[in-house]
Amino acid sequence: MPGKLAAWVRKITRDDDQIDAEVLTDQVDATGAIRAQVCCQGQRVTLHGRLRYVDLRPTEHQATLVAELYDGTDAVQLIWLGRRSIPGVEPGRTMNVRGRVALRDGQKVIYNPDYDLLPVSV
Rank of each mutant, 00 (worst) to 15 (best):
T64P: 01
D16V: 15
V66R: 07
D105I: 06
E60M: 09
P87D: 13
Y53A: 13
P2G: 08
A75K: 04
W8Q: 11
I86D: 00
L81A: 08
G32H: 08
T94E: 15
I110T: 03
Q62H: 07
G49P: 00
A30M: 08
G3T: 07
Q107A: 02
Y53S: 15
S121Q: 13
R93F: 05
A102D: 08
V54C: 09
A102Y: 06
T25G: 11
A36W: 02
N112V: 05
I79N: 01
L47S: 03
Q41F: 10
Q18Y: 05
I34G: 11
M1R: 11
A33S: 15
D71W: 01
Y53K: 06
V97T: 05
A33V: 08
R10E: 15
G72S: 02
D74S: 08
L24A: 11
I12H: 09
M1K: 10
Y111G: 02
T94I: 07
C40D: 14
R35M: 08
I12S: 02
Q37D: 14
L5S: 12
W8M: 10
S121M: 09
G3N: 09
V23L: 15
T46M: 13
T13Q: 12
G92K: 04
G82K: 03
A6D: 14
D55F: 06
D116Q: 11
G82W: 02
V9N: 05
H61D: 12
W80F: 10
D29F: 15
V97E: 00
V101M: 03
V28E: 02
A63W: 09
V76M: 02
K4P: 02
R100M: 10
V9A: 12
W8N: 05
G49S: 04
I110S: 00
E68N: 07
L5F: 14
L81C: 07
D29V: 12
Y70E: 07
K4V: 11
D17S: 12
R93C: 04
G3I: 06
R104M: 11
V101D: 00
E68F: 00
G49D: 00
M1N: 11
V109R: 02
R44M: 11
E90G: 05
D71R: 01
R83V: 05
D55C: 12
R52E: 12
V101L: 07
E90S: 13
Y111V: 08
I34D: 13
V120E: 14
Q77V: 04
T59M: 14
M95H: 02
K108P: 04
V45Q: 00
